[in-house]
Design a binder for these strands. Structure first.
Length: 672
RNA sequence: GGCGGCGUAGCUCAGUUGGUUAGAGCAUGGGAUUCAUAAGCCCAGGGUCGGUGGUUCGAAUCCACCCGCCGCUACCA
C-alpha cells in the first residue's frame, strides 16, 4: 500500500532572493520527496512565497512600486531559482491569496469562538512622519549598555545586550530618520497556554527530534505566553475581520499558507481539500530551519487545535549553513545567491555535496569550498561517473552495445549492491542522507575494484564474450547505483536511463537485471569542478554586495546638495536675515545672469547684485518682499559693490525661487 | 546573563545501549597499471577524541566544572 504524504518547506520571504543557505532546506526536502516518489509513494511537495509584513511594505515603497508588484517579481525569481536547482514543487503558491485569506479568517474566528483571542493595550513606537508603527528592527540608536551607536531596537550587536526600544539612547526610525514616539494601541493576542496540554500530547507522539524537544521543554518551563497576532495599519497583510485597521501579523498567515497552497492544488486537481488535510489518509510533514521552531512547534499546532483542524505528523528541523566554517558573509563573498551559483557551477554538485553532509540533527552543516571541490571531483566524478565512463563506451565501441548475461561473479557483485538497498532506504527515510551517500560511495569503490580485478581492457583483446560478461555486470551495477542516487541527482539519473535505454528507474528496479539488452552511446554525465569557477562565483558575490550597497545608498531619500556639517545656534545667529522690500530692480549691462536690486530694509537700503536674471524680470520684482542676508560682508564685483544676498531656493538658471514672508511682515524685521 | 546544540586525524565527517591496538573519504608520501572525465587499484604516515576532575575492571561514549563556536531569548521575519 503506497503511503500518501504532504510535504512542505518553509515559505521563503518575498523580500529577497534565494541563497545557498536557503537551499539546504529546499534540497533536503526535495531529495526526501523524490525519494518517496521513487519508492512508489504518493508524495506531494508544497511551498509558497511568504509575502506579508512590514519589510515587504517598506521595500516596495522604497522601490516606488506596490507590494503586489514586488511580491509578483520575487515569486518569478524564486520560481526560477528553485527550478534551476531541480527543486520540484507540486505547487508553489503565495500567501497573498484568497485561499489564505479565507483560512486565516476561518482559523481566527474559530479561535475567537473558543475564547482564545484576547485584547490588550500595548505601547509601541510610532513614526509620525511616515504614519506607521515601527517594529523594533526599524528603530536604531545607541546601546544603553555599551554606548555603541547604530544598534537595533531590541538588542546590541556589539555587546549582545537585550533591552526595550525605549531604553535606546537617541532612537531614530530607520524609515524616516525621525525619533519615534510611543503610542498606545489595542492588540489581539492568541492565548497559547489554552493549548498547553494538547501540545504536550502532540510532542509525546514524536512531533519533533529529541534535541528539538529539549528546547521546547525549556519554553514550556518558562511558561507559555500570549502571542500578539495583530498589527495596526498601514500593514501589508490580511485585515482582521470585524476590526478597524487591524491586520494579522505575518506569522499568523505564513504557516496557514501551507494549507492555502495545498487547497489551491486540490482545486486544480479535483481533490477535496478537507478530505486531504483532515481525512487522516495523508501524512503531513514540515521541513524547517531551527530558527523558526518556535512558530512551527508551538503557535502553528496551537492555531490548528483552536480551529479543530488536524495537526501535522512531524516537524523536521535542520541547522544552518556555514561556509568555510563561518557564517555566510557578504564581504567575504560567501553570501551566494542561487542565481549566482547557477551562472558558474552545476546544480548537481551542490545537491550531491549537501546530501553527503545532511543528517537528521539540528547542527549546522558546513560548505567548505576545498572539501566541496574534492568530494565532488573524487567521489561523484572520479568514482561514480567514471565507473560508467570506463565501461559503457567499451561496450558500445567494441561489442556493438549489446549487454550479455551475468555470470556467478557478476551476480555476486550485484548481490552486494542490492543487499545495501534497505540500508540506503533507511538513510533517506530517516533524513540521514550522509549515511546513504557514504554507503553508495563505498559500493562504487567495490565496483571499481571489480573492474580492476577483471581488467576488461586486457581481456577485450582475447576474449570478447568474457569481456561482455564483465561489462554486463558493471553496467548493471551502474544501474543499481543510479537508483540509489536518483533522489539526489535526477539529471544524472536521466542521462544514465537514456544511455542504458531504459524507462525511468525506481527503487522497485533494484532487483531486476539488464541482460541481452542494447544500450545507447555514452553521454558525459557531469563535469569536474574547476577551482577557478568557485573563485569566480565568490568574486561575483562580492561585487554584488558592493553594487547592492550602492543601490541601497541610492534608495535612501537623498538631497541634491548634501547637508553641510552641523552648525550651532550661535553659528546660525551670525547670519542676520531680514525682510526687505525690492525698491528698484534693473538688468545689469554686460551680465546675463545678474539683476541689480535696491533693497529697502525699513530705513536703510542695500545695493545687491543677485544672480536671478534667468528666473525673474526686474519689473515683476519691484515692490515685493524678499528675505536677505543683511550683514553679509560687502563684496566688490565687476559691476559694483554687492552689500547682501537675497535668499532663494533651487539649483539655478531658470529654477530659482525667491523666498517671501507671509503677509504682515514688514521690511527690516529679522528672521529667527 | 539564561537556555539549547556542537567541539574526534591537515580538511569534511562516522563512531550503535561505555568493551579488545579509535574509523572512512579527501589531502600528503611511495608503488604497480592505463579501459576511463590526469579517473581507477595497492601500501604507508598522521589523532593524549576541546580542557580538568570524577564514576567504572574499563570512558570518545556517563557525571561535574571550565574553554571555544553556533543558535534561541517570545513585537525581525
Amino acid at each position: 500500500m503506497p503511503r500518501k504524504m504532504l510535504v512542505t518547506s518553509a515559505l521563503p520571504y518575498a523580500n529577497g532572493p534565494i541563497h545557498i543557505g536557503h537551499l539546504v532546506e529546499y534540497l533536503q526536502t526535495d531529495i526526501w520527496v523524490r525519494f518517496q516518489k521513487a519508492m512508489g509513494n504518493d508524495c506531494r511537495y508544497f511551498c509558497a512565497d511568504d509575502t506579508h509584513g512590514t519589510p515587504i511594505m517598506i521595500r516596495a515603497k522604497s522601490e516606488g512600486i506596490t507590494p503586489e508588484e514586488l511580491i509578483g517579481r520575487m515569486q518569478e525569481e524564486h520560481t526560477r531559482d528553485f527550478a534551476g536547482f531541480g527543486i520540484e514543487f507540486d505547487n508553489f503558491y503565495t500567501t497573498h491569496s484568497d485561499e489564505n485569506r479565507q483560512f486565516s479568517e476561518m482559523i481566527y474566528s474559530r479561535a475567537k469562538e473558543k475564547g482564545s483571542i484576547v485584547k490588550k493595550q500595548i505601547q509601541q513606537s510610532y513614526d509620525e512622519q511616515e504614519k506607521m508603527w515601527l517594529p523594533d528592527r526599524y528603530i536604531k540608536g545607541t546601546c544603553p549598555r555599551c554606548k555603541s551607536p547604530d544598534q537595533y531596537g531590541d538588542s546590541c550587536d556589539s555587546c549582545g545586550a537585550h533591552y526595550q526600544t525605549t531604553e535606546l539612547i537617541d532612537p531614530v526610525s530607520t524609515v524616516s530618520g525621525n525619533p519615534p514616539v510611543l503610542r498606545e494601541s489595542t492588540h489581539h493576542f492568541f492565548r497559547l497556554s489554552d493549548y498547553e496540554d494538547a501540545l504536550k500530547e502532540l510532542f509525546s507522539q514524536g512531533y519533533v527530534q529529541d534535541s528539538v524537544q529539549n528546547k521546547l521543554d525549556e519554553w514550556f518551563d518558562a511558561g507559555l505566553k500570549d502571542w500578539d497576532i495583530s498589527r495596526d495599519g498601514p500593514y501589508f497583510g490580511f485585515k482582521i475581520p470585524g476590526e478597524e485597521d487591524k491586520y494579522f501579523y505575518v506569522w499568523v498567515d505564513a504557516p496557514i499558507g501551507y494549507m492555502a497552497s495545498i487547497k489551491n492544488y486540490c482545486d486544480k486537481h479535483g481533490l477535496d481539500f478537507d478530505q486531504v488535510w483532515n481525512g487522516g489518509e495523508y501524512e503531513i510533514y514540515h521541513f524547517i530551519g531551527k530558527d523558526i521552531m518556535y512558530f512551527h512547534a508551538l503557535f502553528w499546532p496551537a492555531l490548528l487545535f483552536s480551529a479543530n483542524l488536524r495537526t501535522p505528523d512531524k516537524l523536521f528541523v535542520h541547522g544552518f549553513l556555514t561556509v568555510n566554517g563561518q557564517k555566510m558573509s557578504k564581504t567575504k563573498g560567501t553570501f551566494i545567491m542561487a542565481s549566482t551559483y547557477l551562472k558558474h557551477l552545476d546544480p548537481q554538485c551542490l545537491r550531491y555535496y549537501y546530501a553527503s553532509k545532511l543528517n537528521a540533527d539540528v547542527g549546522d552543516i558546513d560548505l567548505s569550498f576545498e572539501d566541496f571541490v574534492n568530494r565532488v571531483n573524487s567521489d561523484l566524478v572520479g568514482k561514480l561517473a567514471n565507473l560508467a565512463s570506463r565501461s559503457g563506451p567499451m561496450l558500445t565501441k567494441k561489442l556493438d552495445g549489446m549487454l550479455g548475461t551475468l555470470d556467478a561473479e557478476g551476480k555476486a557483485l550485484l548481490d552486494e549492491l542490492t543487499g545495501a538497498k534497505q540500508e540506503i532506504i533507511e538513510g533517506y527515510e530517516s533524513l540521514n542522507y550522509a549515511a546513504a551517500i557514504r554507503r553508495i560511495a563505498a559500493l562504487a569503490d567495490v565496483c571499481n575494484k571489480y573492474v580492476e580485478n577483471h581488467q576488461p581492457w586486457t581481456t577485450i583483446k582475447t576474449d570478447a564474450e568474457g569481456t561482455r560478461t564483465t561489462l554486463t555486470a558493471i553496467l548493471n551495477a551502474v544501474k543499481v547505483l543510479t537508483i540509489y542516487l536518483k533522489p539526489v541527482l535526477p539529471e544524472f539519473a536521466a542521462k544514465i536511463e537514456q544511455f542504458l535505454s531504459i524507462n525511468p528507474l525506481t527503487f522497485a528496479d533494484v532487483q531486476s537485471t539488464l541482460e541481452n539488452h542494447k544500450i545507447n552511446d555514452f553521454v558525459r554525465l557531469i563535469e569536474r569542478i574547476e577551482k577557478e569557477k568557485v573563485e569566480a562565483m565568490v568574486e561575483e558575490s562580492k561585487e554584488q554586495t558592493l553594487s547592492q550597497q550602492t543601490e541601497e545608498a541610492e534608495m535612501q531619500p537623498k538631497l541634491a546638495e548634501p547637508l553641510e556639517p552641523e552648525c550651532t545656534f550661535e553659528d546660525f545667529m551670525k547670519a542676520d536675515l531680514r525682510i526687505a522690500r525690492v525698491a528698484a530692480a534693473s538688468a545689469v549691462e554686460g551680465a546675463d545672469k545678474l539683476l541689480q536690486l535696491e533693497l529697502d530694509l525699513g530705513g536703510i537700503t542695500k545695493n545687491v547684485f543677485a544672480g536671478i536674471a534667468k528666473a525673474y524680470k526686474p519689473e515683476d520684482l519691484v515692490g515685493r518682499l524678499v528675505m536677505c542676508v543683511a550683514n553679509l560682508k560687502p563684496r566688490k564685483m565687476r559691476f559694483g559693490i554687492s552689500e547682501g544676498m537675497v535668499c532663494a531656493a533651487g539649483p539655478g538658471g531658470e529654477e530659482i525661487f525667491l523666498l517671501s514672508p507671509d503677509s504682515g511682515a514688514q521690511p527690516g524685521q529679522r528672521v529667527h
